[in-house]
Design a protein around this nucleic acid. Structure first.
Lengths: 201, 201
DNA sequence: CAATTTGGATGATTATTATCATCCTTCATT
DNA sequence: AATGAAGGATGATAATAATCATCCAAATTG
């Protein structure tokens, strides 16, 4: 229909990105088509290439978008040190290892939802995924000598726990997976000097 | 061409299953077509439905097949108790968290390669994945009161670590992820009374 | 206000897909 | 040897995919 202002175009762009980030996480990269994404954004498929050069480019941007939202959402106090930082980390972990996060794949962590897929896609998609992991691990890292590695292990535990919980056949198994993941995160945190999950409650 | 004996048909069936288990892990479920699988098994696409009722059925069986191979491969001493069991667990963990496993997606753990996909597919695929997780967690569980939950958390850490390592953009990051995962597995094991990774070396 | 630009829609194209119908060939059985 | 059963090949079908060419209408620019 219309030619829209630059601000309107940006709005369309953001709607496409939001829809893509949600659909890719919900259905997987291959199972969500460009037409699906555009329809979810309230547009038709043909205009897509006015916004993105290819589906791969969209996937990469959508991954970055999702990771950014996840980190900014829980990032209050992240830059601080000491107790404020530990509190932000604990809150992040508590929310990550929650039934809500397990149920809401479409709005959840893209690493848990698309990590294995991104590893196969290579190129820009894998690059964005790798960057997201590095940023999340840095956020989770305690103020310690080998804090970065501790953050990586924590990140692996979080993503793995949510993936297994989503896999679970029964709500009981899913709940047990989450509880076990929380306890393990507490142990890993305690070894680092404090217990992120317990102190969050 | 031929009409083959029952044993020959079983051979074809197994070849299809092997090829499927490998291709699905390597490329993902959607990206590996039935024609690809049959071609990799040395057959043409048309005969597929003489062996499996649908692609979903093949995926489910292939997942079970892959999980079975993984567990039987490292299962020597799994049924025993005490030191023999702990040794089998430690060897499993050491092999799981190795660069070889990270590199060889096609022969590796199906939970790490296809877990997120299986959660989305639902039905028989998810059921097989869930059963695989339960079996692997039971194998990893220490002889303790809350050993089962410990096994689940360990399984989550293992799968998450391999996924992140495969995601990693650079070999350096991948190596750091594996090292961090190994250390974390050691910590979780120590809390359970022993250190599975260290005692494996 | 006229001209140009450009988001977005419509529709085509080419490729690939899962699934199935049909046929051929050979093994097992009589 | 003749017959029937069935594994596998060939080819068709129908749906869906990503990508692109073309067109339309409005908004910005002059």
């Amino acid at each position: 229909m219309p030619r829209m202002s630059a601000a309107e175009k940006q709005k369309s762009h953001d709607r496409i990105l939001d829809a893509a980030a949600r659909l890719f996480r919900e259905r997987g990269i291959e199972a969500a088509s460009i037409a699906d994404v555009m329809h979810a954004a309230g547009l038709t498929h043909g205009g897509f290439y006015k916004h993105f050069s290819s589906k791969q480019a969209l996937v990469a941007e959508a991954f970055r978008h999702a990771a950014g939202e996840l980190l900014s959402g829980a990032g209050a106090g992240a830059d601080a040190g000491g107790a404020a930082r530990a509190g932000a980390q604990a809150r992040f972990i508590a929310r990550y290892l929650s039934p809500d996060h397990v149920a809401d794949t479409g709005q959840g962590c893209p690493v848990a939802a698309l990590g294995a897929d991104a590893a196969r896609h290579g190129g820009a998609v894998q690059a964005e995924a790798s960057r997201a992991v590095a940023r999340m691990a840095a956020f989770l890292a305690p103020d310690e000598p080998d804090g970065e590695d501790r953050g990586l292990a924590l990140m692996a535990l979080l993503a793995g726990t949510v993936t297994l919980a989503r896999l679970a056949d029964t709500p009981e198994l899913a709940a047990r997976v989450i509880a076990a993941g929380r306890r393990a995160a507490g142990i890993l945190g305690k070894e680092a000097g404090e217990d992120p999950v317990e102190t969050a409650v």
